[in-house]
Every structure is written in C-alpha cells, then in structure tokens.
Design a protein around this nucleic acid. Sequence first.
RNA 1: CGGGGCGUGGCGCAGACCGGUAGCGCGCAGCGUUUGGGACGCUGAAGUCGGAGGUUCAAGUCCUCUCGCCCCGACCA
Length: 477
Amino acid sequence: MAEKITPRSEDYSRWYTDVILQAELADYAPVKGCMVIRPYGYALWENIQQALDRRFKATGHVNAYFPLLIPESYLRKEAEHVEGFSPELAVVTHGGGKELEEPLVVRPTSETIINAMYAKWVRSWRDLPILINQWANVVRWEMRTRLFLRTTEFLWQEGHTAHATAEEAMEETLRMLNVYKEFAETEMAMPVIAGQKSMTEKFAGALASYSIEAMMGDKRALQAGTSHYFGQQFAKAFGIQFLNKNNELEYVYQTSWGVSTRLIGALVMVHGDDQGLILPPRLAPIQVVIVPIWRDEEQKRLVLEAAGQVQARLSATTRVRLDDRDEYSPGWKFNDWEMKGVPLRIEIGPKDIENAQVVLARRDIPGREGKTTCPMDALESRVAELLTTIQSDLYARALRFREENTFYPRNYAELAEAVENGFAFAAWCGSAECEAKVKEDTKATTRCIPFEQPAEVGPCVVCGQPAEKQVLFARAY
RNA sequence: CGGGGCGUGGCGCAGACCGGUAGCGCGCAGCGUUUGGGACGCUGAAGUCGGAGGUUCAAGUCCUCUCGCCCCGACCA
C-alpha cells in the first residue's frame, strides 16, 4: 500500500501498472498473463455490470449462459472466424486422464457454440428475434498482456442476437453500439468516437464492425466497445434457418456485441492522475469517504459520533465509508483514499463540530482548491450536488483533453505528425494499401470511420485519390 | 517469437566483479507517545538467496542447464 506511484510524465505504462497494483484493483496471478481482480476492482466491475445490464434489459435482452468448452470443429465452421482466432486458442486435449477424441477449445468468444444452439432453437419467424446476452469469461492466448487491457483470461459480456431481416439486425447492431456510447459517456464520464471499423480492422467473421474509441491519458486510442453485424455468414455456417411468413426457408441475420474488463483500464487512463485513480461518482465503489480527526479520547468520542451520524444520513442515497481506523493518521488516509480514487472526501474534526459543519474535498481538484466547508444541515443536498458536478466535470475535462489533442491533417506529413500527438481525423480513400502504409510508417491504425462526418472531405491524405470519408487515425492499445 | 531487465524475509532492494556463517528500508507484531496532508521511540518475529547439476575445504557469489516474471516490438477486447 501507500508507496510512490511513478509519475505519468516519467513512464506512462509504469504509472498505469503502479496505480492498479497500489489501488488494489488487481494483482498478478501465478500464470503468465493472468490477473486476480481484487475486491475493490471487482466492486468497480460489478457497478459497470449493473449499469450495462440495466440497459440491456431495457432494450429487450435476456441473460443466459453457454459453456466454456467448445468442440474444436465448431471454430472451423466459419472460415474467417477460425483464421482470426486460431493463433490465440487454448485447447483442452485431455480429460479424466485420457486423451480426448476431439479437442475442446476454451472459448475465445462464443459465436460458434451459441449459433450451434440457435440452429436447434429456431424454426419459425415466430421464434425471432433472439436477444440473448451472457456475462462470461473468455481466454485468448495473447503474446503481450497488460493488466485489464489485455489479459489471457478476461471477463466480459457478449450479446448474440438473431433476426428475421437484415434491417432489423443492422438496427440492433447500431442500437447496442449506441448503448455503449451512452454508457461510456454517462456512467464512465468518458467521451467516445463512434463509427465503423475498416475492413482490415473488423471482427473475424463479421460483415461490418462498429466500435467506440476513447482517448487515454497518453493520447493513445482504446477500443472501448464493439458491435458486429454478421448478416447471414454464421447462419449459413451453422444452419440457422426459419420459415418466414411466406413459408419460405431463410437464414437468420445476426449481431454480436461486447465490452470487457478492459473498461476498467480505460477508467484508470482517462481520469487518473499522479496521485492515483480518479473514479467517476456513478461507478465508484465508494463515492464518499469520511475521515474523522481527533487529538484525545474525548475528541475521538465526539468526532466518531458525529461522523457516524454523517455516515447514517448519507448512506440512504450514497455509497459511503467511514474510515475510523486508529492506526493511520488523517494525512495518511487522505493520500490512501486519493490513490483509490474516491470522488469525495468528508473531513470532520473538533473544529467542524464546533461550527456545525464538515469539510468536503474533491478528488478531481487536488489540494486546498478542492476543499469547501458545508453546514451540517445542508449535508445531503451538497454531497449529492457535488457528486453530480464531479461526474460532469470529469466528462468535460476528458472531452477537453481529447479535443486539445485532436488534429485534422491535410497531407501525409501532417498526418504523421498528428498521430504522434493524438487523434487525427483525415480523409481516406478506403483502400487497405493506404491503411497499411500509415501503419507501417507511423504505427497508427484506422480506429473507425466516425458516423459524424464533415460536409466536405478532401482527397485521401495518403494517396491523394478522391475520398468519401474521413477516418480516425491513432495509435491504439 | 525478437530485444531488454529481473528472480535474495510480505514488498522494494544491497551483497556477486574479488567465494569465508545473509543485510538495509518499508511493512508486520507488542508497548508507549501521537493524529487538520503520508507521525515517532523502544522491543520483536520473519529468508530452502527461483530450480537442478557441477567446481571448491567452503557457493547468494564461479560454471552449465533450466523455470518463471516484468518491460519494449509484431498479434489483439
């Protein structure tokens, strides 16, 4: 606990790791690339889950659970899919002390097993749509791992839907992308760019992929959520057919969409500072921490009594914690809770009791500047108001940061410079060659073709050919 | 898989070049004094030096092999 965090300016990725370890979000597990999500990190994940699950239910989805182990042959049924995932599969070859007749893969994603089941369940247009989500773990044998951002095993949700028409499936794809965008902005206080993935960046097996892209504190892009339109690709591979209203046999149209524990990494990098985490109030496991201050036993008794009352009054509406540990000094606690990113701190000592007030300290505004006093009788309203303000200020700050580091290069030299310093929106002809050249020269990739497009797009910044769309180029995680 | 770094009490490290009975800081336990921005004193517990083999009277230290982790790149949510 309570060790020094490497400053971001000195080594950003070191800072990132320090924050996660010291704030006790996660720890390294004995197996390479695997991590333990510790209680504080898991509480954060639970809040993310709840906020998303609410939205999934509100858009008509239900939860289910499909198995971890998938027959290897299933992965091979869709050509592009197997090609995309083969290199990173974990395969079970033995069970019960014997070699298995057919190896089982540990799911890297569940399209295949779920679609195999859908083939069994779908007969008629009346069986559609199927709107199922599952919360699960998946395994991808990545070469390079990083806490939360890319671990061998990770937690996520994956929605898998089947529809009677292409229009309906496409609508669903975009609806869920929009759910992610709204979630990221409202709950995570993280502005995102929504758009379509290029053909080279899209999901293995999808006809079209869409993503939300966020800018991290080091100006790199992080894909924070994806939604895929499959058309009938998987339906044909798995034989998911139904009789439509005209008594004609037809393949279903499908989607899948997911977000993962990577979002926790995003929260760390979007809002955190050199003191540690800064959590948006809506997702923070502890929204308000009360730090009591006393000198002697008599004061301790009085202060703890008052602090207990403050806690009781707030606990109806707020996730509040009273830190009454005797073994740490107030100063130590200030630093500790700041590292853990608690949005609002209440200090209460003898002076405050005398004045019938408490001191409120905002995590997002360090030092004296973020401190105000609050009369005891205005406690509930002021705390609620401040938490709302912090939430929106965090969003505004992240948005400003992104905008300050966003560029609109007109030629290749400008593009190369722009992606060194942040996001670059630039005209692109749509060819994979131009994409590859940029990646080769600058390490930046196309993140997405934003839905929001300017009225006029100039020629492709790479080849100079006519371009129809502006694309977001950035270095990505 | 390529490049770099590192495995020594719980954590961070020193000791290695030059072999000779394992040390420092933090943390931990007990007691006392402290507490409005990371308190202090005293006492104490805790280490198969990643693993195997070798050289030697003697190995944390030298040699060989091996395992693992972290960071940087290619792959990726």
